[in-house]
């Protein structure tokens, strides 16, 4: 029983750590979509953030500088989406794919010299008071700063979105741009901020992956995490609190994948590696069923993009 509980808690905390980059993207993308804009480019922004963060950490020797640089890289790339969508009125999906390809290309091009570099990590909670907590200490110890920052972002975003005037206008922009306009505000400003925030979070997510979680840079290392996150936003019903369990789905399937391999389960690692895509996709199916029945909180401005020709 105790063995079982330990294994389960180990798995849960492993899931939390591997879920963190995805969680950050889900939070950012949920905020973007709340303003009525969808951005598939988060995958590319995440890659550029990961590469930039790792490169800066490697050159300066300061991983925190790397995290900051990653955030800026994410914002910078997201501005391409902002210019195309808000400035030119281009199709949001197509623009997102353009940003996705650009981010992948730029990170591969400029990241090559840094492949195999060693960087200092951000550290973790081991050797602090937390790791001395009885029973739970061994699980809380390996938690790293990006996990904590991302978790803290949940209540912060929630308070902003649901308890402030700006948050109200942010949400109303996603429901109907006319409402925001009638209130005397420019909806485009909110959407610009929303895309930039999505850029910030996806850049940060890249750093959480490359600088913190793996301390490594490999071309294309996000492997669809950003795209999984875009799907999970729907599972999370655009709600920052539900983003955590949604992202944990990805984390748990990845942790389970690694765990099953370490147990020597006789299944090909390549089949197991499909779990982090198949499980979120399966939950997405269930979630859509609920969405169809109830409307499920999809920002009205999004349904135009999401349910084309339906």
């Amino acid at each position: 029983m105790e063995y079982f509980a330990t294994e389960l808690l180990t798995l849960l905390f492993a899931a939390l750590r591997s879920a963190t980059p995805v969680l950050a993207v889900v939070l950012g993308e949920a905020m973007t979509q709340r303003s009525g804009v969808i951005n598939l480019g988060v995958e590319g922004q995440m890659l550029l953030g990961a590469m930039t963060g790792f490169a800066v950490a490697s050159v300066t020797g300061d991983p925190w500088l790397g995290v900051m640089a990653a955030c800026f890289a994410g914002i910078a790339l997201s501005m391409v989406h902002a210019i195309l969508v808000l400035g030119c009125g281009a199709n949001q999906i197509a623009s997102g794919v353009a940003v996705l390809i650009l981010g992948g290309g730029l990170s591969a091009y400029y990241g090559t010299p840094f492949v195999g570099d060693k960087i200092d990590t951000l550290g973790n909670l081991n050797h602090t008071f937390v790791s001395d907590i009885p029973l739970l200490g061994q699980f809380l110890g390996p938690i790293t700063p990006t996990v904590l920052i991302t978790l803290l972002a949940i209540p912060a975003i929630s308070i902003f979105l649901f308890r402030t005037r700006t948050g109200l206008r942010w949400r109303s922009t996603g429901e109907s741009q006319d409402i925001t306009r009638n209130l005397g505000h420019n909806p485009v400003h909110y959407q610009l901020a929303a895309i930039a925030f999505g850029g910030l979070m996806s850049g940060f997510a890249g750093a959480a992956l490359a600088v913190d979680y793996t301390a490594n840079w490999v071309e294309g290392m996000t492997a669809g995490r950003g795209l999984v996150a875009v799907g999970l936003v729907i599972v999370a019903r655009w709600n920052p609190w539900y983003a955590l369990p949604a992202a944990l789905l990805f984390g748990a399937s990845e942790a389970l994948n690694l765990k099953l391999q370490s147990w020597g389960v006789n299944i090909s690692p390549y089949l197991l590696a499909t779990l982090p895509y198949m499980i979120p996709l399966s939950v997405l199916m269930l979630s859509y069923r609920g969405l169809r029945a109830s409307g499920g909180g999809m920002p009205a401005g999004l349904s135009v993009v999401f349910q084309s020709a339906r």
Partner: peptide, 19 residues
Amino acid sequence: LGVNETISTLLLNYVGILL
């Protein structure tokens, strides 16, 4: 189910490559 085809096709790409 009404699942958005953009997201499902993107995710299935990774599954196909892994298969």
